[in-house]
């Protein structure tokens, strides 16, 4: 499913060998790629997230509506409907500055059977994945993106955001969105309803999900639940919890029993992709069909950029040393030339 770190590094080192001579002459302190990568981040102790099980989703979009209510987001009118739709019908096409959570549909051929790759269809929910090693946080120059040290929830702070949109560009899942239409716009993204969690309430999307397709819980627990589901076969009867795993927050919700209809893809999306994400996904169709990045390394891209930056600017030692040399040379040459 993903390029291993080792493979990626091997390729990088091979590339490095070819260009080694150039580096030497270029004078850039660029060591071997292997040495350049900073160690990947690990999951915070009480990391929480969502488990979205596409095979349970019925596409009712209650979560889309609940998300709008919980976060006070306006209706998102599809460009084609602006002529007649005056906000009576919310019709988002994708995550946007007005939509923090959306249900997308995969279709193929006759679309006859749910969770089937050919001639079938499948639902897919999109919201912030709350990466273990988020690109947006590494990218943001003013620390406007933060990751809670305990829950790992990635939040945005518009009070200091300068609107450079590097987070928008860098996110591998296309999650942070900027409101380009507002002259004083801001970045919008799912923050796992941390304002509701603070009130001991479930995130909006989980609160309303009728089938438990979206579950809230500690990422470790969600992963165990996902592992359990991967052992289920079509035709098995199984109990599926709703709301928060373990009944938190806000008390236990009734679970429901269901015959497993579709065969699960034997993979938990988000377990390893790009260093792992706190929100996990299960699906009946291959994840690349859901337009999720699948052929990706098992480490976050910030390990590379921060590795390069770290190697060069570690405690600003290198720049200071280089500056010292430059000062000496310049002191001599500036005198000489003028």
């Amino acid at each position: 499913m993903s390029v291993s770190r080792r493979d990626f590094l091997r390729k990088a080192v091979e590339g490095g060998a070819a260009a080694a001579a150039a580096v030497a002459s270029g004078g850039v302190p660029e060591a071997e790629a292997a040495g350049l990568q900073r160690p990947p981040r690990t999951l915070p102790p009480d990391a929480v997230g969502l488990l979205y099980d596409g095979t349970l989703c019925i596409g009712c979009k209650a979560c889309v509506k609940a998300c709008k209510d919980a976060n006070g987001m306006p209706p998102d009118i599809h460009a084609d409907q602006r002529g007649w739709n005056q906000g009576t019908w919310d019709s988002p096409q994708d995550l946007s500055a007005k939509t923090l959570n959306i249900i997308k549909l995969y279709t193929d051929g006759t679309m006859a059977v749910k969770d089937r790759e050919t001639d079938g269809y499948a639902f897919s929910k999109r919201q912030c994945q709350h990466c273990t090693d988020p690109s947006c946080i590494s990218a943001c120059p003013v620390s406007a993106m933060t990751k809670d040290p305990s829950t790992g929830i990635v939040s945005h702070h518009p009070d200091r955001c300068i609107g450079c949109r590097y987070c928008v560009l860098s996110c591998p899942f296309g999650v942070p969105k900027f409101d380009f239409e507002d002259p004083f716009g801001r970045i919008h993204k799912c923050q796992l309803c941390n304002h509701r969690l603070a009130e001991n309430k479930l995130p909006g999307c989980v609160d309303v999900c009728p089938t438990g397709a979206t579950l809230f819980g500690r990422t470790a627990d969600l992963e165990r639940e996902a592992e359990r589901r991967l052992t289920l076969k079509p035709g098995d009867r199984a109990v599926f919890p709703r709301g928060g795993l373990g009944g938190t927050p806000g008390g236990a919700r009734p679970s429901h029993e269901k015959v497993v209809a579709a065969e699960y893809q034997q993979h938990i999306y988000g377990k390893s992709e790009l260093g792992g994400t706190q929100c996990l996904m299960l699906s009946g169709v291959p994840f690349d069909k859901l337009n999720l990045p699948t052929n990706v390394p098992d480490y976050g891209y910030p390990t590379l950029t921060e590795g390069i930056q770290g190697a060069v600017y570690q405690s600003m030692v290198t720049p200071v040393v280089v500056l010292g040399g430059l000062l000496a040379i310049a002191h001599r040459n500036v005198k000489g030339s003028d």
């Binding site: 019925i58 596409g59 009712c60 019709s91 988002p92 096409q93 994708d94 959306i102 249900i103 997308k104 549909l105 995969y106 279709t107 679309m111 006859a112 269809y121 639902f123 897919s124 009728p210 089938t211 429901h256 029993e257 269901k258 209809a261 069909k289 859901l290 337009n291």
Partner: peptide, 17 residues
């Protein structure tokens, strides 16, 4: 026990992936 929805068979206004 929850019903299996029959009427969501696409296309019914879902955005594609």
């Amino acid at each position: 026990e929850l019903a299996t929805l029959q009427s969501v068979a696409p296309p019914l206004g879902y955005p594609g992936v």
